[in-house]
Design a protein around this nucleic acid. Structure first.
Lengths: 226, 226
DNA sequence: TCAAAAGTGTTAAGTTTACACCCATGA
DNA sequence: TCATGGGTGTAAACTTAACACTTTTGA
């Protein structure tokens, strides 16, 4: 009768949509697909997929992201469920959106090319299918809030980075310029952002010190505020 | 072939679970069900239901809340989708949790009684079935954050309230005492929290001024910070 | 008359913001 | 030698936090 109780209800396709953030040429960008499949062939969309029987919703999101990027162990956060009746004109699909932060040096370029995916500046996102524009808006808002109080930004950078790179990342995330001296003062207070003895000479003649984020040290004293 | 593409994927029951907050006797409380039905008869749970074909997920949440409380137009926010494979031992259900803020003077007591639901102090929540404890944890965190920066607390109070009531509400939400003079100073800066000429004599001999939240005035200058 | 809640300002501490110049180096 | 990005400290403005007494009135 328990079986009975559940089976009186309808079932739904449950989709996954991924908002993939990357930090490219000093700008925050999204990895978007120009669909070469139906429905909505030719239009822009997020990378998506469907939850399968043998996986949790979170695992489905990881799988979908991995199908696009070849990446594993990526920082992802759920944005929420999107469940309007006609959100997908191809049929009733309830979709769960996730955002992911990836280091653009590490993804599988071939896979991305096969999916006809492209990096698009966050401020120049074209109209997207269905409710994907709303998903992006929510994802961006959530990511921005989270990035202000938790050290998730490092997922968008290479393991070693300069303070100028870090600052321009946060300027891209918040969409506003930051004061260099105030920024560096705050970084200096976070001992888990460690100066290494390596130097990056690609960005300037003088060379800039390379830093790394020490996750363990952060967990000892998890205070973060940019 | 579009149909084909979708139908290669499995379908799922999509559940709704409601974290119903109320402000009762100076304490934040949750409306919890002691289940008189299977599965998990006798145990404590959130009010739940299933999304139907003819409704959006948000509408399903409103319906489920209304089935329990008789209320309409309640403040609700989505907490997120919960999709672990074995989260519900009775079958694969992907559930979307919502929190609701209700004024405890206005719900339908008979309906609540019929569902065997009870108000439980937020700090004395019994073990809940499935992943409902985690849902409550997330809902509480989200609500607390939101309440600090948006005027959602008024949904938990009667239309007219005293500043002492308002303060004790926020103390319950944040789980910490607030300074009376600092609190009132901040309230005074929010012109959309309007003093009325009515007085509440039930809480003290002297009587306390009754205030109301003016939504329109708030939208003119939507700044809120407690 | 007294117990109980309502109401009311000031000051110190801490945080945030604004701001400008010298340094090192490769071209 | 000079153009370019790297690196550094201080003071004013603002925000937050701490704090105690008087008022009113019903019992």
């Amino acid at each position: 009768m328990m079986k009975n109780y559940y089976s009186a209800n309808p079932q739904f396709y449950v989709g996954i949509d991924c908002i993939v953030f990357g930090f490219l040429k000093g700008e925050l960008s999204l990895l978007l697909l120009q669909r070469n499949f139906e429905p909505a062939r030719g239009e822009w969309s997020l990378m998506g997929g469907f939850v399968q029987e043998d996986e949790s919703v979170d695992d489905a999101a990881k799988r979908v992201l991995s199908e696009l990027t070849g990446l594993d162990k990526v920082y992802m956060e759920q944005v929420g469920a999107f469940g309007n009746i006609h959100r997908d004109p191809g049929g009733r699909v309830i979709s769960v959106a996730y955002y992911a932060l990836i280091n653009i040096d590490e993804y599988d370029h071939d896979l991305v090319r096969q999916h006809n995916a492209h990096w698009v500046n966050i401020n120049e996102v074209p109209p997207l299918i269905f409710d994907h524009t709303e998903m992006v808006r929510r994802a961006r808002m959530l990511m921005c809030q989270k990035a202000a109080t938790e050290p998730i930004g490092f997922n968008l950078l290479p393991r070693l980075f300069t303070l100028t790179q870090l600052q321009s990342l946060y300027e891209a995330i918040f969409g506003e310029p930051l004061d260099k001296r105030n920024f560096r003062k705050r970084v200096a207070e976070m001992n888990y952002i460690e100066k290494t003895d390596k130097v990056d000479k690609t960005g300037s003649k003088r060379g800039a010190a390379l830093y790394q984020f020490n996750e363990c040290a952060y967990r000892q004293a998890p205070k973060f505020k940019i």
